[in-house]
Write a protein that binds this DNA or RNA. Structure first.
Lengths: 195, 195
DNA sequence: CATAATATGTAGTGAACGCTAAATAAGTGC
DNA sequence: GCACTTATTTAGCGTTCACTACATATTATG
């Protein structure tokens, strides 16, 4: 059997470009025209390689998730639970306001996107956020098992609180907050650590 | 001079209907067709009464702001600063998950909406959020003046922290969190109160 | 009643949307 | 070289978008 004409672009690189457009414009705001232009390809190539707009978004989201899951895992590996959480939030304060990528977190940014496509996409985003929160909770459960947290501490609730603060920080970043301002928020959040 | 044919619908009621559509679908996701259907009028009536889609959104936003500014002011009138903040956050936990209106806060929801219309709208949303945060800060400054907060307390930073938590709660609500779960978040947030 | 002024319903504008058919180009295996 | 497979280019599909011209209906004023 024959192999056919080889693809003239790098799929992962194109996916990264698409991710940035989705991140900056949102799902509905990112038109196929914007996407193909940023990706440097024509519509038929996009559809041949990625399916359709929604599937492209899902793949971009998966790629985004990979990168951040890895980073999260690394940060949570800090020796104590409290250090782990602080590392996570400090990193968020920095990366959410980093101007080399769109401000705010893609997950948080994409929740609003509403519309009818929203249902399926929202479900996927929810799963990603739950993955993140679960990893936090497991780290906190370990901290509790190691005696770092009091017996009546509730790792699940604490994980949710931290997640909530991080999501709020993303909104703040989208609204123009600076890194310094987010660092102050982190200070307060850590003040809620049970003892 | 003559007065012309009177309007056959209530402008404020139509605005409320439009608000709900924007709230549920986002700015870009809410089509003129959706809006006119919900408002019970035809496109020419919409344009005659409200200008265009963007101006309609601004007016709907103003109306939303009025309602919530009033509520916020009432809640912040609690005798102590801490009670005021707790009242605000408990109310948020309830109203963000209230199923009689779309989940989450319209301001937070609308930030993502990206695109090109975004610039002007984002500016307006930012102003609204700043109004809210300023009112919180002023209440906390009063608390400090009354000796409820330590001398080294920073009302502006505390106001930002509380705002951040509230915005995070909105994201949580959009993602499906229940009122109970948000109440637990409030518990933690209040744990960060300076003493 | 006639006129002026404003609102409404009908119908449709050009533009942008997501997406694709058809022809062509670029590879592999025989 | 020839058949086969796959990617790319060109061009345009049908639909929906925000928005509006136009004729009609409904009011106040003279």
């Amino acid at each position: 059997m024959a192999a056919g004409r080889p693809r003239s672009f790098c799929k992962n690189q194109a996916l990264d470009r698409a991710l940035e457009v989705f991140w900056r414009q949102g799902f509905e705001g990112a038109s196929i025209c914007h996407l193909t232009e940023a990706m440097g390809i024509n519509p038929p190539s996009l559809y041949a390689a990625f399916g359709n707009k929604e599937q492209l978004f899902r793949q971009a989201l998966d790629r985004y998730a990979e990168v951040y899951a890895e980073r999260r895992t690394a940060l949570l590996a800090a020796p104590t639970g409290r250090e782990a959480i602080e590392a996570l939030l400090r990193d968020a304060a920095r990366s959410l306001t980093d101007k080399s990528s769109p401000t705010g977190c893609l997950y948080v940014q994409a929740i609003a996107g509403g519309g009818e496509h929203g249902a399926c996409i929202r479900e996927m985003l929810k799963t990603k956020r739950e993955d993140s929160e679960r990893e936090l909770r497991e780290r906190l459960e370990r901290a509790k098992a190691e005696g770092e947290l009091p017996d009546d501490a509730d790792p699940a609730a604490l994980a949710r609180f931290i997640t909530t603060v991080a999501q709020g920080m993303s909104v703040q970043a989208s609204g123009g907050a600076t890194r310094k301002e987010l660092e102050r928020v982190v200070d307060f959040a850590l003040g809620a650590w049970p003892s």
